[in-house]
Design a protein around this nucleic acid. Structure first.
Length: 423
RNA sequence: GGAGAGAUGGCCGAGAGGCCGAAGGCGCUCCCCUGCUAAGGGAGUAUGUGCCAAAAGCGCAUCGAGGGUUCGAAUCCCUCUCUCUCCGCCA
């Protein structure tokens, strides 16, 4: 959520900034609603003040043993007026918050213009795509003989689910272990274990609700639960309604979790294989930082994710998302795209975002600034470090041999009992 | 799942319709005194939000959440959530 005060003080600027995303903000309708809000709120508060004052007078008169009937007569119709004003104000504020919750974050000044992923800006490349002496297979063809079974996934649940058996399942677990250990031991993150179902308040806090409910799986329950689409949701909500002491900052959490996405609107895309599943494993990095350090933290967090790709010796590129491709809650996002020989393409394997105070305002996540002594909104960041399912694919495709076996990357061997090859 | 108890500021805890945004204690911050490892005295110490460019100021809201009764609710009523104790079930 954006700062409502920003809308009041600099509406024109906000409209322009949102336009960079292609988001048309109806400033006229907003202004009309805001004008009503101001009028009704002031009136309501005046009525409340009057009620409080008069009630106090009644109490004092009664204590002195005076006749309070005349005073009671004076406030006879105050209650109804107040009730009506409060109801109207409540209605207006609901409308306003619906409006505000549907508005995306303001983009960072460094985000390039553009409409789609075609306009994203490549920042750097690391590693050289391997030259194969044979035609490389994709992970589906490689995986099926090794225990990757999509029919079973469909039987047990539906399309877009998979069953991994044997060494492939172990390989994915090894990948997760490497990621966790690296981020904990080398990058200073604290490991967390969290609920994989979250309530509506939590989803609202990180920005998935109310706008993106269709992307979530819901659990029939009262109240409704949602399967987490990413560990970002439960982990970032650790600081919801919290005032963090300055000496505890920055908070750095790493969390392995399954992620569940309905992939509504993704029909027909990436239907083959494990690229786009309803359930996948991910290791997520979350940082809660002070505002002036968030840009720096964003670079660092992205580098932490890159470390994993480097340890696995997987070629990748780092891309700065353009205005039109940057997610709703983010002000700036780097994607890491890994080289997939089976597709002859770089594909997203990590997305690292600086949300600045956008999530923090929804979450009321704050820190106490020692300079002012006041609670101020924190900045939140997160990034995949990395998506484990896609990392599995990348390892399989990049490390495949002509006979269909897969060489285990050096960095993973300690987690696989030292074996060098999966076949 | 059943029965009972509870939820008040950073923490403990009083509060039982008006004098309560809330006693007292602890903690913390600042000042004073004292001087030797500890003590004494004083002041301050919630959050959100409206009017305002901002500050100041003046309001409004908040005692788990939501609703109700009342001129007036931390206090009375209803619903829900969470915590604790006991029983049952269970990885």
């Amino acid at each position: 959520m954006l700062d409502p005060r920003l809308f009041r003080s600099d509406l024109e600027q906000v409209v322009q900034q949102l336009q960079r995303r292609g988001f048309q903000f109806d400033a006229v309708a907003y202004q009309a609603l805001e004008d009503r809000r101001k009028g009704v709120q002031v009136k309501t508060q005046e009525l409340q003040n009057e009620r409080n004052t008069r009630s106090k007078a009644i109490g004092q008169a009664k204590a002195k043993g005076e006749d309070v009937q005349p005073l009671l007569d004076q406030v006879a119709d105050l209650g109804d007026q107040l009730k009506a004003a409060e109801a109207e104000l409540n209605d207006i504020q609901n409308q306003l918050s619906v409006l505000l919750e549907g508005i995306p974050n303001i983009l960072d000044a460094t985000v390039p213009a553009g409409k789609s992923d075609a306009d994203n800006q490549e920042v750097s490349r690391w590693g050289e795509p391997r030259q194969f002496t044979f035609t490389p297979k994709d992970h589906v063809d490689l995986g099926e003989p090794l225990g990757m079974n999509f029919e079973l996934g469909a039987k047990i649940a539906s399309a877009r689910f998979v069953v991994l058996a044997g060494k492939l399942a172990t390989l994915q677990r090894a990948i997760i272990q490497l990621m966790l250990n690296t981020h904990i031991n080398e990058h200073g993150y604290q490991e967390t274990y969290v609920p994989f179902l979250a309530n509506a308040d939590s989803l609202r806090g990180t920005g998935q609700l109310p706008k993106f409910e269709a992307d979530l799986f819901t659990v029939k329950n009262d109240p409704t639960f949602y399967l987490i689409p990413t560990a970002e949701v439960p982990v970032t909500n650790i600081v919801r309604d919290v005032i963090v002491e300055a000496k505890q900052m920055p908070l750095k959490f790493v969390c392995h979790s399954p992620c569940f996405r309905s992939e509504a609107g993704a029909y027909g895309s990436d239907v083959r294989g494990m690229i786009r599943q309803h359930q996948f494993e991910k290791v997520e990095l979350v940082q809660i930082v002070t505002p002036e350090t968030s840009a720096q933290a964003h670079e660092e967090l992205t580098a932490h994710a890159e470390t994993i790709l480097q340890k696995l010796n997987l070629p990748y590129r780092k891309v700065l998302l353009c205005a039109g491709d940057t997610g709703f809650s983010s002000s700036k996002t780097y994607d890491l795209e890994v080289w997939l020989p089976g597709q002859q393409k770089y594909r997203e394997i990590s997305s690292c975002s600086n949300f600045k105070d956008f999530q923090a305002r929804r979450l009321q996540a704050r820190w106490r600034n020692p300079e002012t002594g006041k609670p101020e909104l924190v900045h939140t960041l997160n990034g995949s470090g990395l998506a484990a399912g896609r990392t599995l694919i990348a390892v399989m495709e990049n490390y495949q041999n002509e006979d269909g076996s897969i060489t285990v990357p050096e960095a993973l061997r300690p987690y696989l009992g030292g074996i060098e090859k999966i076949q």
